[in-house]
Amino acid sequence: MQTLLREYFCLVVFFGISLFISSFMVLLAFLRAKQNPYPEKLTPYECGFDPFDDMSHKFDVRFYLVAILFIIFDIEVAFLFPWAISLGEIGVFGFVSMMVFLGILTVGFLYEWKKGALDWE
């Protein structure tokens, strides 16, 4: 337990140092570079004229669909990891129970494929 937490403590310190380095780099640029903003310079990039309206517009529903399908497959991967570790211990029974699980999800995957949810035209 102690050694485990010590390893994670190193991780936290590493994260802290890298956070420090990257924010330091931005800070350095703020200190060194000459800032000379004026309204025309600060407009969002769009072909030389002001953007017509707010950018949060209608977007294709497929982006949501991809995100949802990603969640499901990500959970599947998350279930696979501990299984991969202890496959030697749990043997054939564990293997079969995972195959049933994957089979259920494969049904969903085939349904998806048939319905054309994976197509981007």
Partner: peptide, 21 residues
């Protein structure tokens, strides 16, 4: 390093700088 940092006027300043960091 010596270029100007341009923050678009409609941008959320904190998040705009947080993203690259």
């Amino acid at each position: 390093l010596h270029k100007e940092i341009i923050i678009p006027h409609r941008a959320n300043k904190f998040l705009f700088l947080l993203a690259p960091i």
